[in-house]
């Protein structure tokens, strides 16, 4: 590969078309670099060429997402790139999400690597970070030069299939990939060393960063439970016997809802556990031990709440990523809201 072929994705603003008033601009392509792409080209020098720039208005992109993604991908594919670069989008939300969608399509459909540049809080990060290399940027364009240099180097290495260093060294957000490395000291020695550093109040770098969790403000309590529709939701993998919809025992790819109208409880004849993370014997014997339908029906008949929702919602939490969990929660919430649900009883294993 003499020179790598790069396509650059921008929004209408960075492409120089205009601001908010031009946010309805449909996708367009131009040969060669545009706007910040010129700085990219400088960093790449003789190693590569920005063969084309594709840009789209921030509003147009999201108005009909599937249509826009197709249009943008077609324009990108026309240039037969070795790598896609998108942004940097800094903390711009619509732009960041658009970059994330375009990068994911490049990875999944064109099978080429993609590099973004975003502030870690940009919503685009959550959408694509496991599959896209996102260079960490500041919140504003003040860090443009630095971001572009890091992104260009990374794009070149990826297109040349070079071995990458750690995210800290290369400047991108960790994708959640673990790689084995050889080090001089064994685990016990390293752990004791870190402990001593911690006791002495010195800085140390953990080898196992705990995932950061986003706090959700507690919603207000249910005012009048007697008038409330309540739903049962579970990550315990309780499904109809035989698992007809093939819910995965780990790393679930979906959630499913099952009709419980007219059922007084969940019996082992009709239901089973598809979860791969705990001993299923007890749940297979009596699934009420995981989804307490029998007691919920009893309380419903006693008028403790108005009605139990006609379906229960299930997924499997076993090794399922927080990102997926968040997505399933959001989708289930949309359904629950549409059905007037005011409270959820969720069982977890």
């Amino acid at each position: 590969m003499a020179k790598i072929r790069v396509v650059h994705y921008l929004n209408q603003f960075f492409a120089g078309v205009g601001g908010e008033e031009k946010a309805g601009t449909p996708p367009v392509s131009r040969d060669g670099p545009v706007g910040p792409g010129k700085a990219f080209q400088e960093v790449l020098g003789q190693r590569g060429e920005i063969v084309g720039t594709v840009f789209c208005g921030d509003n147009y992109f999201h108005e009909d997402l599937e249509r826009t993604k197709r249009e943008v991908l077609d324009l990108i594919a026309g240039y037969r790139p070795d790598v896609l670069v998108a942004g940097p989008a800094f903390s711009a939300g619509r732009y960041g999400l658009a970059c994330a969608h375009v990068c994911l399509d490049a990875v999944q459909r064109l099978k080429i690597p993609a590099v973004g540049g975003q502030h870690p809080d940009n919503p685009g990060v959550g959408l694509c970070r496991s599959q896209v290399y996102i260079v960490v940027t500041g919140e504003t364009t003040a860090g443009m030069r630095q971001a572009i240099t890091t992104m260009a180097e990374l794009a070149w290495k990826l297109a040349m299939r070079k071995t990458l260093g750690t995210p800290e060294v290369e400047g991108y957000l960790p994708r959640g990939v673990r790689r084995n490395v050889f080090v001089g000291e064994d685990g016990a020695e390293r752990a004791v060393k870190m402990l001593l550093q911690k006791i002495r109040g010195e800085l140390f770098t953990t080898e196992l960063p705990l995932p950061t969790v986003d706090a959700v403000k507690p919603p207000l309590a249910v005012k009048d439970l007697k008038e409330a529709v309540v739903a049962l939701v579970t990550e315990s993998g309780i499904v109809p016997k035989g698992n007809p919809d093939h819910l995965e025992s780990a790393q679930a790819s979906k959630w499913i809802k099952y009709d419980i109208r007219g059922k007084a409880d969940l019996t082992g004849e009709e239901f089973m556990s598809a979860h791969g993370g705990y001993d299923n014997r007890f749940g297979n014997e009596d699934p009420d031990r995981l989804v307490p339908l029998d007691v919920m029906r009893e309380l419903e008949q006693e008028g403790r709440f108005k009605q139990l929702l006609n379906h229960y919602y299930v997924t499997v939490g076993n090794c399922t990523s927080v990102e997926s969990g968040r997505q399933y929660g959001k989708e289930i919430a949309t359904e629950l809201l549409a059905q007037g649900v005011q409270a959820v009883v969720l069982t977890g294993t």
């Binding site: 919603p219 309590a221 939701v233 919430a333 629950l336 809201l337 409270a343 959820v344 009883v345 969720l346």
Partner: peptide, 9 residues
């Protein structure tokens, strides 16, 4: 679900 405003337990 809580982010959508539905209290859960």
């Amino acid at each position: 679900m809580e982010r959508a405003g539905i209290p859960g337990v």
